[in-house]
Simulated scan of single mutants.
Amino acid sequence: MNVLVLGGTGFIGSNLCKSLLIRGHKIRIIDRTIKNIGFDMTNIECVEADFIDIIDFKPYLKNIDVVYHLISTTVPATSNMNRYFDVNSNVCTTIRLLDDIVKSNAQKIIFLSSGGTIYGQTEITPIPEDHPTNPICSYGIQKLTIEKYLFFYFHEYGLDYQVVRLSNPYGKGQNGRKGQGVIPIFINKVLKNEEIQIWGDGLTIRDYIYIDDVIEALSTLLEYSGEHRILNLGSGKGSTLIDIINIISSVTGQKALVSFTEARSIDVRANVLDIKKTTKELKWEPKYSLSNGIKLYIDKI
């Protein structure tokens, strides 16, 4: 297939592109900065462009079968600071993209949503896809809005789509020195003997999934033709920040320095995804435990 990957040089995008190449697909990348993503890029067409500045996506959609939309211009922790930018840059630009997709020959769009922010404060754990969605940060609201627009374009124009509600991915290609991801940040701090600052008591529960498990599922979705359009993607298991610190200390043999500060209003107490539907539909299951994934990441540093 001919695949367009929006955000193809990022953490998830670069790992996905490598997998798609191995599977024999042809790839076109759009990203703000085209950089070396760690493997041979001679078979990848690269377009250096800022997602929010693209007015006409049609030239980039030529001969494309499937679009992976991995781009977000904001992160949960800061999205509330400029809600207008969050919505305008993500939702409005995605609507322009969808308008041009329906004018092209592309068959499907796969959108990376957020299982960690879509649901908000939850009533049950693990969280199934049909749980009420009440996000408590702007990031989650814009992700949910895009999900609703995807359904609208399916209903109005027959555009096939898949929503992946991803939990907290970590692993190779993630840079803790740049503040990317809790696990890489903590590992970087421990290895440098620097203090880890935790918001709250460290007992908030999250679902962490190793990047290879993420990519296996995303790659499989390329040819998925089942009836379910929204799928959770995580490990299905919850871990606290204290759990993560203890594992890192055990693997590295170094004691972590930790301080605690007041909890943030954007943080839900627990978020663990129910992945039974994804496991059944994709004939996929996560292979890496949290301890194994952290060890693999540290070994590759």
Rank of each mutant, 00 (worst) to 15 (best):
V102R: 10
T93M: 00
G140Y: 15
V66P: 00
L144S: 04
G171Y: 09
E147C: 09
Q180G: 01
Q180C: 11
E123T: 13
Q174W: 05
C137V: 05
N175I: 06
S89L: 03
C92V: 03
L61R: 03
P76Q: 10
S113E: 10
T94G: 11
Y157D: 03
T93Y: 01
T74K: 15
Q180P: 12
L112G: 01
I109C: 02
Y153E: 12
K172V: 02
V66D: 08
G171I: 03
E129T: 13
I109G: 02
Q107T: 06
T78F: 14
L61S: 01
I95V: 04
Y139W: 10
I124N: 10
D99R: 03
V163H: 05
A106R: 09
M81E: 15
P132H: 07
N105D: 15
L112T: 08
P126R: 14
L70N: 07
L112A: 05
P128T: 08
T74Y: 07
S104R: 06
N175H: 01
S89K: 05
S113Y: 11
Y170F: 15
A106D: 08
Y153R: 11
G171F: 09
S113R: 06
K143P: 00
I110R: 11
Y149T: 07
Y161C: 12
N134P: 03
G120L: 04
H69F: 11
